[in-house]
């Protein structure tokens, strides 16, 4: 069994609010100095799903990352975590692709990889939070797609997925190969170990350019970003204090009873 996992390098979504700045001219967030990029956390959940299939059913796991200026320490993390191979799609032409163009490049790379049973990625990238690429990838490749997985099992020619629903979950079966997007409920990526890091040094890394994928220049974005701004916040917080936590609690109780009676 061969599982492909698509992982995106993004600005660290956990960075403190004070570090988040926009470049109004380029209409994008400025990477904060000293805060390295990370793999999108949902994509790490997808990698964990793939590694569980490796543990349980001996799947071979191929990680794929697309972009420009990919930080090697970041995009090689899947190899240290247990993935078998890494494919890097890195080119200035691929820096600012829209979701649909990204899906086209990933689809071309996956066709070049050739053999696969399952394609996994996060439910959404934690920068643009769109959740489009996984679905668009399935459409590009003409495959079925199950989104928001919290559990994935491969049974014969089918992939059985528990899909997160607002009030529980749905069980869905898809023919393989298919695309599955993964929710955080599936579980966090396992800890990276020292033996894992050493083993990663011997694992193969392929670097492909547009010419390797025989792709024409990417299509222009279908959407134009006309504005990007920070929302204004006008709330002023009244801090309720006291000599002791108990006193503050009683003052808060009075405030709540006044503002919001039962």
């Amino acid at each position: 069994m061969q599982v492909i996992v698509c992982l995106k390098q993004i600005l660290d979504p956990e960075m403190p609010s004070g570090s988040f700045h926009l470049d109004p001219n380029r209409k994008r967030a400025v990477p904060p100095p000293g805060t390295p990029p990370v793999l999108s956390p949902f994509d790490e959940n997808a990698l964990e799903a793939a590694l569980r299939l490796k543990d349980g059913q001996g799947a071979k796991v191929i990680a794929v990352s697309l972009g420009d200026k990919l930080a090697r320490a970041v995009v090689k993390k899947p190899l240290s975590a247990g993935a078998d191979e890494l494919v890097l799609l890195e080119d200035p032409e691929w820096e600012d692709l829209d979701h649909f163009a990204s899906a086209r490049v990933l689809a071309a790379a996956i066709r070049k990889i050739g053999e696969f049973d399952l394609i996994l990625t996060g439910r959404q990238a934690a920068d643009w939070d769109a959740g489009l690429v996984g679905s668009a990838l399935a459409e590009e490749l003409g495959l079925g797609c199950v989104t928001l997985a919290r559990k994935i099992e491969v049974v014969k020619d089918k992939v059985r997925v528990e899909r997160v629903a607002p009030d529980g979950y749905e069980v869905v079966e898809a023919l393989r190969p298919c695309v599955v997007t993964v929710d955080s409920e599936l579980g966090e990526l396992r800890q990276i170990t020292m033996p894992g890091i050493f083993a990663a040094k011997k694992k193969p890394i392929q670097e492909w350019k547009p010419a390797d994928l025989k792709l024409a220049s990417p299509a222009p974005a279908r959407c134009e970003l006309v504005d990007l701004y920070l929302p204004k916040r006008e709330t002023v917080c009244e801090i309720i204090g006291g000599e002791s936590p108990e006193e503050a609690a009683l003052k808060l109780a009075d405030k709540l009873l006044e503002k919001c009676p039962a």
């Binding site: 917080c237 009244e238 936590p245 009683l250 109780a253 009873l257």
Partner: peptide
């Protein structure tokens, strides 16, 4: 606290029990 209208700085373990008792 930059979203809240009212705030208490402290450990909820010491604040919630007397608050609930009062309510």
């Amino acid at each position: 606290f930059s979203f809240a209208n009212y705030g208490v700085v402290g450990d909820y373990r010491r604040i919630l029990p007397p608050l609930i008792e009062r309510l």
